[in-house]
């Protein structure tokens, strides 16, 4: 068996028994099931979960991810001392963190929709929400890995993780809203779309919007919106941007892992 899958398996085995990951899974499961239980329809539950996906999921992925990478430091050194290439070790370690995070979300948020498949949530909407959550898990696990490899000061690392969360989940949108208000007289659709793609949380949100709220998006006067969101193109662009948002921090983290001293 190759190094990537061996290290990944160890990570899966470890984190699937991790009490935080288990609690994380159960809380998604409980909340989604609870929303259905209290009379929510499929689309309503989707929208409520969207808030969790945009706020809580990045927080957990960033903070838990950073702490986890720090905690694995000595084990990583032991593995690095074995006759295996760093590149493969890194892939295994990243996947061993990112896949349990994504899987925990997928199980917690996904199962209620399977159970309540008849409650009116469209397949596209559910797929977009689950895809956005998985994408954000992978992207922020990469960012967390990068932060933890970037600084050895654990307090600083967790601080950076929290800062990254606050910036991407809340502050960024505030700045965008301010910009939209301040430059309301200019044609804003193109720069604004660009700004949306530059933040993974917004990309994930837009991905879900293209499935749930296309009727609203199409109400905006702007040929670009119409071209982008009226077809599958918008979903495609958002999905591609989310993949890019996994790849770039992963590339940075990987580069750091290959070059740095332990």
């Amino acid at each position: 068996m190759n190094v990537v899958s061996l290290v990944l398996q160890a990570g899966l085995r470890d984190l699937s028994r991790n009490r935080w990951i288990v609690a994380y899974t159960l809380s998604f499961l409980g909340i989604a099931e609870g929303l259905f239980w209290f009379g929510g329809t499929g689309p309503q539950v989707l929208l409520s979960l969207l808030n969790l996906v945009l706020l809580v999921l990045p927080l957990v992925a960033l903070v838990f991810g950073t702490i986890h990478v720090y905690a694995s430091r000595e084990f990583v050194e032991l593995l690095l001392a074995q006759p295996v290439p760093r590149r493969e070790l890194f892939a295994g370690l990243y996947l061993g963190l990112a896949l349990p995070l994504a899987g925990a979300f997928l199980v917690g948020a996904g199962i209620p929709f399977i159970v309540h498949a008849r409650d009116g949530a469209t397949l596209g909407g559910v797929a977009a929400l689950l895809g956005a959550g998985v994408g954000l898990s992978l992207a922020f696990a990469a960012v967390a890995t990068w932060i933890a490899l970037f600084t050895d000061d654990r307090l600083k690392g967790v601080g950076l993780a929290l800062g990254a969360w606050l910036a991407s989940a809340v502050i960024y949108d505030g700045l965008v809203l301010g910009a939209a208000a301040a430059f309301g007289n200019y044609p804003l659709e193109r720069p604004l779309l660009g700004l949306m793609l530059a933040n993974p949380v917004d990309v994930a949100r837009v991905l879900v919007l293209t499935q749930l709220d296309v009727s609203a998006l199409m109400g905006y006067t702007g040929a670009l919106f119409e071209r982008t969101f009226g077809t599958a193109l918008g979903t495609g662009i958002a999905a591609a941007a989310l993949v890019t948002w996994c790849v770039i921090p992963l590339g940075l983290a990987g580069r750091r892992f290959l070059r740095r001293d332990f």
């Binding site: 470890d14 000595e74 032991l78 001392a81 006759p83």
Partner: peptide
């Protein structure tokens, strides 16, 4: 070349849930 080496670090921190 690390095939030639067995390493015992100062303190072992294996993942707790393994």
């Amino acid at each position: 070349y690390r095939r030639a080496i067995g390493y015992m670090p100062q303190a072992a921190h294996f993942p707790a849930n393994l």
